[in-house]
Amino acid sequence: MPENGPWEYSLHIPNDARAVTVCRRTLRLILTVHGLINLVDVAELLAAELVSNAVRHTRGPAALWVRWSENGVLRIGAWDADPSPPEPPLPLDRGVDAEDGRGLDLVRACADGWGWHSLGRGNERGKYIWCELRGGERVA
């Protein structure tokens, strides 16, 4: 049985499109083991958007971070080595034919909160984009 306190995982990934699938499956396993099955579907979608942006729009390595806090908040974050801010989210209603540009708007629509910040002095260490899901109840 998993512990009831806070926990955190990180997965460092190469710049490879296959890493998105690895992250989704790893996240599903983490949440299942910790009894947070009710968050799996939305969390997978959010993680896939964050990680695919990191892999698609940068050239270096990336990482997925997942943290559960004592107050029942799941934080999913993606780090990449590019210090540039993410493109602002575009409206979901801008057309079903749009091929890209909707990822962060999906994050904004599905998460209870999201944001980003640069790491290190002068943006030398990349950026971290995160989102949160609240109210997950553990299933024993």
Rank of each mutant, 00 (worst) to 15 (best):
P2T: 09
N4H: 13
G5W: 04
G5F: 10
E8A: 13
L11D: 03
P14Q: 12
P14A: 15
N15T: 07
A17Q: 09
R24L: 04
R25N: 11
R28K: 04
I30F: 00
L31S: 06
L31M: 02
L31T: 08
H34N: 10
L36Q: 01
N38T: 13
L39M: 04
V40D: 03
D41M: 05
D41Y: 05
D41T: 14
A43L: 04
L46M: 06
L46C: 03
A47Y: 12
E49S: 10
S52E: 15
A54Q: 09
R56V: 02
T58M: 09
R59E: 14
P61T: 15
P61C: 14
A63V: 08
W65T: 15
V66D: 05
R67H: 12
R67W: 07
R67P: 00
S69N: 09
S69Q: 11
N71V: 07
G72L: 10
V73T: 02
V73A: 01
G77Y: 08
A78K: 03
D80W: 12
P83Y: 14
S84M: 14
S84L: 15
P86C: 10
L90F: 06
L90I: 08
L92H: 09
D93N: 14
G95E: 10
V96Q: 11
A98P: 00
G101M: 04
G101Y: 05
G103Y: 07
G103L: 01
L104N: 04
D105Q: 14
R108F: 03
C110Q: 08
A111T: 02
D112G: 04
W114V: 01
W114A: 02
G115R: 02
W116N: 02
H117G: 13
H117F: 10
H117I: 01
H117L: 07
L119F: 03
G122E: 11
N123C: 11
R125N: 06
G126W: 08
K127N: 03
Y128E: 08
Y128N: 07
Y128A: 13
I129T: 13
E132Y: 11
G135Y: 07
G135Q: 09
V139T: 11
